[in-house]
C-alpha cells in the first residue's frame, strides 16, 4: 500500500549558530491510508514542526517529504498552495475560522477557492455541517458558536474536499473534557465511516485513548510508534 505521507531523514533547525534550535532530528515516518494517528510528546518536542512539514506549510532543513507520492521539494509556492487546497485538511488549535463569514460560508470558502459552482458549494457545505452535528447553525458567525462548535466547523471544512489527509494540531487544547471527547469521537467516526486519514498532534491524554496508532516524539525524534 502506498503511504499517504512519507518522511525520510527529516531535520529542521530554527535559527543559526549558537542560538539555533534543532526541532526535528532525522525523522522517518510513513502514514498509511486510513490511519488515525496521534502525534504525542511533551511541549517543545517538535509536534507542530513535524505537522508543518507534512502540511507543506514549511520546508525541512534536510530530508524529504512526499504526499500521495508527490515529493514536496520539487514544488513551487503556487503548486504547494494547490496541494494544500486539494489534498490536505487543517484543524488548528483556535482561530480556525474567518470571523466575518458564517459557518456555512467558511466551508464554502474552500470550495470557492477550488472553483466549485455556487449551488454545489452550498449543498456540500450544508451536508458537511449536518455530518458534524451542526444542522441549523449554518448562518451563525464564529463568534456566535461555542469553542466546540467552532472546532466542528473546522473539521467539516477540513473534510470538505475529501483530502488525502487531515492534520490537526492540538484541536482540543481549548475545549473542556466533554467537548474534547465529542470532537475526538467525531473525528474517529469520520475516519471509520469514510476512511479519512488523520494525524492529530496532541499532548492531551483524553485524545490518546481513542487512537489507532500512537506516535511519540521526544526531543525531535520518534521515540515510539505503536499500532493498537
Amino acid at each position: 500500500m502506498q503511504p499517504i505521507v512519507s518522511c525520510r531523514g527529516l531535520t529542521k533547525t530554527y535559527g543559526k549558530g549558537a542560538l539555533s534550535v534543532q526541532a526535528l532530528r532525522e525523522v522517518d515516518l510513513e502514514i498509511l491510508p486510513g490511519d488515525f494517528a496521534t502525534l504525542a510528546g511533551p511541549s517543545g518536542s517538535g509536534k507542530t514542526t513535524l505537522l508543518n512539514m507534512i502540511g507543506a506549510l514549511d520546508k525541512p532543513t534536510t530530508g524529504e517529504v512526499a504526499i500521495d507520492g508527490q515529493a514536496l521539494q520539487s514544488l513551487n509556492a503556487t503548486a504547494l498552495s494547490d496541494l494544500r487546497l486539494h489534498k490536505i485538511g487543517f484543524v488548528f488549535q483556535s482561530l480556525n475560522l474567518i470571523p466575518v463569514l458564517s459557518a456555512q460560508e467558511n466551508i464554502e470558502f474552500v470550495l470557492e477557492l477550488q472553483g466549485r459552482p455556487s449551488k454545489e458549494r452550498a449543498e456540500r457545505a450544508r451536508e458537511a455541517l449536518k455530518n458534524v452535528g451542526l444542522e441549523g447553525m449554518e448562518h451563525r458567525r464564529p463568534a456566535a458558536l461555542s469553542g466546540g462548535q467552532q472546532q466542528r466547523v473546522a473539521v467539516a471544512r477540513a473534510l470538505i474536499s475529501n483530502p488525502a489527509i487531515v492534520l490537526a494540531d492540538e484541536p482540543t487544547a481549548n475545549l473542556d473534557s466533554k467537548t474534547a471527547l465529542e470532537l475526538i469521537s467525531l473525528m474517529y467516526r469520520l475516519n471509520q465511516e469514510n476512511g479519512t486519514t488523520f494525524v492529530i498532534g496532541t499532548h492531551d491524554p483524553r485524545v490518546m485513548e481513542h487512537t489507532k496508532r500512537h506516535i511519540e516524539l521526544l526531543d525531535g525524534k520518534i521515540a515510539n510508534d505503536t499500532r493498537r
Binding site: S81, R84, L85, F90, L95, N96, I98, V110, L113
Partner: peptide
C-alpha cells in the same frame, strides 16, 4: 496576520 496566515494555510494563493 494570523487570519491571512490561515488563508494561506488553507491553500489560498498569495496573489489572491
Amino acid at each position: 496576520t494570523q487570519e491571512f496566515g490561515l488563508l494561506r494555510a488553507l491553500g489560498m494563493k498569495s496573489r489572491l
